[in-house]
Design a protein around this nucleic acid. Structure first.
Length: 284
DNA sequence: AATTCCTCCAACCGCGGAGAC
DNA sequence: TGTCTCCGCGGTTGGAGGAAT
């Protein structure tokens, strides 16, 4: 007995948005701000569910949305971020100002997946990424569907696809931090999470071992648009303020040093950061 | 010109986390 | 502590439009 779709209420519109609906939504949000999505449609005079309104606003109507083709620089960044983070579209989108997670997800599924396959890269196989589930391009799914394939439900394919053993605490969403007075590379997104959140199965392997793997993976990222890290005092240090601001350190000694610094923080009982945070912080 | 196939992307669906109660 | 509601995310679908036959 599944949950009823949020738009199942009789009389609510579904499908493409009309210019009139867009105008109503935009006008309302400009007057009252975002949020309260549940009650927003009623107040704005829209026959839509709140979820639909949120999606429309976030993906298309927001004034800071950048429309148009993905640039080669963005393309490159998406590939590198994806190799590190897997299908964390919102995190990747957070690194690309004006781009939405939906847009990046679509772009990945339609362009990059294909491109990387043609290049013989294994990056399309997300099994080796940080906890991302295996994923096929949308077109592949569609072909399956056309051949009589059924919609894959979350959590129903565990028996078929063996779970990866990669340690991955589920991240908690935290708003991106904007460090004033610097360029767009200076903002910094991180996840905070308790390292104790892992399951007994996940604990079988030492976090040190797994995190070391992540560090070695970071080493493959190559140059990145700046990064930041935590100091012992937990201050954020913006990479643009330090010498190596534009390039990721590629020598293992530096990486090892950063990793050890991170691991010390892990051992502090009041502040524990998950490995993803570390990896992300290095990327930012 | 008609039909089929393929690609792209806007939008929907279901799930899980966080916070309120 | 358990339940409920809201929000946000990732996966998936469906249709429009272009390309190929």
């Amino acid at each position: 007995m599944g949950r009823a779709p949020c738009c199942s209420k009789v009389g609510l519109h579904k499908g493409p948005w009309t210019p009139k609906e867009d105008a109503l939504l935009t006008k309302y949000i400009q007057a009252h701000g975002e949020g309260q999505w549940k009650s927003l449609p009623k107040k704005a005079g829209l026959l839509r569910c709140g979820k639909s309104c949120r999606l429309r606003w976030m993906n298309y109507l927001r004034p800071d949305i950048k429309r148009g083709n993905i640039t080669p620089e963005e393309d490159d960044l998406i590939i590198r971020m994806h190799s590190l983070l897997g299908n964390r579209w919102s995190l990747i989108a957070g690194r690309l100002p004006g781009r939405t997670d939906n847009e990046i997800k679509n772009y990945w599924n339609t362009h990059l997946c294909k491109k990387l396959k043609n290049q013989g890269s294994d990056d399309t196989n997300t099994d080796n990424m940080l906890g991302s589930p295996e994923q096929e391009p949308a077109s592949e799914n569609k072909k399956k569907k056309k051949n009589g394939g059924k919609k894959k439900k979350k959590g129903t394919n565990n028996a078929e696809a063996p779970k990866t053993q990669v340690y991955l605490p589920k991240p908690i969403r935290v708003k991106a931090l904007f460090l004033p007075g610097t360029d767009s590379n200076s903002f910094f997104t991180f996840d905070s999470n308790s390292a104790s959140g892992s399951t007994s199965q996940e604990k079988e392997e030492s976090p040190v071992t797994k995190e070391s793997n992540v560090v070695s993976e970071i080493g493959n990222v190559g140059e990145s648009g700046g990064f930041g890290f935590f100091t012992q005092d937990h201050d954020l240090v913006n990479a643009s303020d330090i010498e190596c601001h534009s390039y990721f350190p590629t020598d293992h000694g530096t990486l090892q040093q950063l990793y050890e610094e991170y691991f010390q923080l892990l051992n502090m009982d009041h502040t524990q950061f998950e490995m993803n945070s570390f990896a992300e912080s290095l990327l930012m």
